[in-house]
């Protein structure tokens, strides 16, 4: 157990915890874009930058990313110092220039008082390269997309920029994307994502689309669940079972 100071308030922290974890647990707001509790921290967006110092640092301070920095005894953290706010603003200004189309980024930038306008990208992309989709996909074990190329050309793409072969159409990437960059189109029968079209399993009672067949097959193989769970929608499951339960309770 160690004690640290965040914004002049004392908190207990476990060894190995990051500044962000301690702050969030104590309802101290540190904005993030690339952080997700269930995924390995990468420190890509730098929005969670905080200023740290220590009693024996002779007044020197350092800007670090809260999502990665492990707490240490006596650490003094400022989440809203002048340097922190300035950097956050710059990060958001830069992202605004990168994806001017993203309302999420614009709102965030405005909220932090956007000041500097940089040369805007005009490719219409909303991707901020937070890697959330890539990490989530890897977490599910699919590895259908990855961060390819480097530098400014870095982007999320399936292998060879073609259709994503190992994609199962689960849609997690689109769900987790903070800016809505990933395009996913659902119809009653199919889902289109990453240049692939997936057929839905439909509820055998009402015909509502459930999950994609590929996702079902993936889940059956990797999650060992009986086949029938996938063939009825939640509402129909409940409706069917209610009758069954009613008979049981008689």
């Amino acid at each position: 157990m160690t004690q640290i100071l965040i914004d002049n308030r004392k908190f207990n922290a476990e060894e190995g915890e990051t500044i962000l974890e301690v702050a969030r647990r104590n309802q101290i707001d540190i904005p993030t874009l690339c952080h997700h509790e269930a995924l390995e921290a990468v420190g890509a967006c730098r929005l969670c930058t905080v200023e740290i110092t220590g009693e024996d640092w002779n007044g020197s301070t350092k800007l670090v990313s809260a999502c990665l920095y492990p707490v240490e005894e006596g650490l003094i953290v400022q989440t809203r110092s002048e340097g922190v706010l300035r950097l956050r603003q710059t990060v958001l200004d830069l992202l605004m220039a990168r994806c001017p189309e993203s309302t999420v980024i614009r709102d965030l930038a405005t909220q932090h008082g956007q000041v500097t306008e940089y040369q805007q990208f005009t490719d219409g992309s909303k991707c901020i390269m937070c890697y959330l989709c890539v990490r989530a996909c890897a977490k599910l074990g699919c590895h259908a997309i990855s961060a390819v190329n480097r530098g400014t050309l870095k982007e999320v793409a399936p292998p060879f920029h073609e259709h994503a072969e190992s994609c199962v159409g689960c849609g997690t990437c689109a769900t987790i994307c903070p800016t809505g960059h990933i395009e996913m189109v659902d119809t009653a029968e199919t889902r289109t994502i990453w240049k692939r079209e997936f057929e839905f399993v439909t509820c055998k009672v009402c015909g509502e689309p459930l999950i994609t067949k590929a996702y079902r097959d993936y889940a059956l193989e990797n999650r060992r669940l009986p086949n029938d769970y996938y063939t009825v929608c939640s509402a129909c499951k409940k409706s069917e079972l209610s009758g069954h339960f009613a008979r049981l309770s008689l």
């Binding site: 890897a138 390819v148 480097r150 292998p159």
Partner: peptide
């Protein structure tokens, strides 16, 4: 060639996406 990248992924048992990421990095 694309075939080589696929073969490498298979052989090393590394996801194709990762091999492609390395090859483009």
């Amino acid at each position: 060639p694309e075939e080589a990248i696929r073969a490498a992924a298979d052989h090393l048992e590394v996801p194709l996406g990762k091999v492609y990421a390395v090859a483009t990095f």
